[in-house]
């Protein structure tokens, strides 16, 4: 058990070019990117297959039972659905590489162009929301951990936990509806739709951020309390470091690495949350696009949006894992 445990990369020679790869996290990032590419391929293939998994004729379904047979045939041909499956697949892949996601079945717009216009709108919601989540949850979680550790202030702990469980149980779209009712209908402080002014961002971003912030705050607190019980925190105390150093240097970094994994999950679920929130606020992002497209059976458009959403999720996961490797050198071994 206690045999010489050298790092996975310690065998690599030093030297200028090897310097970057010698950092355990960089080597890890390389290995992890491979998994990213495999997942990406699975995503691409799944979204390609989606249209073929739909029972019946997707074009007929999209155009409706009353559409003339010629139109259906013409559309089938335009979509290349008559070609053998593997040809369609290679065509699909070739299209992806050249940035061509096909054409909408409803309005003949290029899917890539629509997605390109809508994606920034979604990011404009998701990113501020994520920052807000961190800005709220980390300080709140840390303060709650400090106040309630060692079984003190049981009342406060119960209140905090109940409140956060309650808030976390409210899904984004309900929160959005509630916020609209409170701050756009009862108190007309913020606009209910539109995105011209900064104030129109307030309600959508809040709807996205509040529930995840509650979850995160709870997790930060629990993780911090767990880390405070670790042996190395006792060591730090045995060194007689002042409390602020024990927290800042020893407890928090370890608690945050544990939290980071969950933060990644949270960020991806916030990406999904945008779907609902955009629909409440009539926000012209990917979320309202995918719902419209599903309802209109505009399959190429759905395909394109699913791809972009999925790639975003995979990218977030990759970033989180690499960040974790930078912060906690042990994680490169666990994952490797």
């Amino acid at each position: 058990m206690s045999g010489p445990m050298s790092g996975p990369m310690s065998g690599l020679v030093s030297g200028a070019p090897a310097r970057l790869v010698r950092a355990p996290w960089a080597a890890f990032a390389l290995r992890r990117s491979w998994r990213f590419l495999v997942s990406l391929w699975v995503l691409v293939t799944a979204s390609f297959l989606m249209i073929h998994l739909i029972p019946g004729d997707p074009v007929r379904a999209a155009l409706g039972t009353t559409a003339p047979v010629e139109l259906v045939e013409a559309r089938r041909q335009a979509l290349g659905l008559d070609a053998p499956l593997w040809q369609q697949y290679t065509g699909f892949l070739r299209g992806l590489l050249t940035g061509d996601l096909g054409t909408s079945m409803v309005n003949d717009l290029r899917v890539a162009q629509v997605v390109g216009e809508r994606l920034p709108e979604t990011i404009k919601l998701a990113l501020p929301a994520f920052v807000l989540v961190l800005a709220i949850s980390v300080p709140v979680g840390v303060v709650m951990a400090m106040l309630t550790r060692g079984g003190r202030r049981r009342g406060g702990e119960l209140a905090f936990t109940s409140a956060s469980v309650f808030v976390a149980a409210i899904p984004e779209f309900l929160l959005a509806v509630g916020l609209v009712y409170a701050f756009a209908v009862s108190l007309p402080w913020f606009p209910v739709a539109g995105r011209e002014e900064l104030s129109s961002y307030v309600l959508p971003v809040l709807s996205l951020a509040i529930a995840p912030a509650a979850v995160m705050a709870r997790i930060v607190r629990v993780e911090l309390l767990a880390v405070l019980g670790e042996d190395f925190v006792r060591t730090a105390r045995a060194k007689r470091l002042p409390a602020r150093l024990i927290y800042a240097r020893h407890a928090l970094p370890n608690a945050l690495t544990a939290t980071l994994t969950l933060a990644g999950l949270l960020l991806t679920s916030m990406v999904a949350g945008t779907v609902l929130v955009e629909n409440v606020f009539a926000w012209p992002g990917l979320g309202s696009t995918i719902v419209q497209s599903i309802l209109q059976k505009d399959y190429p458009m759905v395909q394109g949006v699913v791809l972009v959403y999925g790639a975003g999720v995979l990218l977030v996961n990759l970033l989180v894992d690499v960040l974790l490797a930078v912060l906690d050198p042990r994680s490169t071994i666990r994952e490797g």
């Binding site: 029972p55 679920s269 990406v271 995918i290």
Partner: peptide, 23 residues
């Protein structure tokens, strides 16, 4: 396969599947 699928938020998976199974 499970490892890859679990990375995606359930709502996105549900939307994807809703396309296949129909509204």
């Amino acid at each position: 396969a499970v490892g890859i699928a679990v990375a995606f938020p359930a709502l996105l998976l549900a939307l994807f599947l809703a396309v296949i199974f129909g509204v």
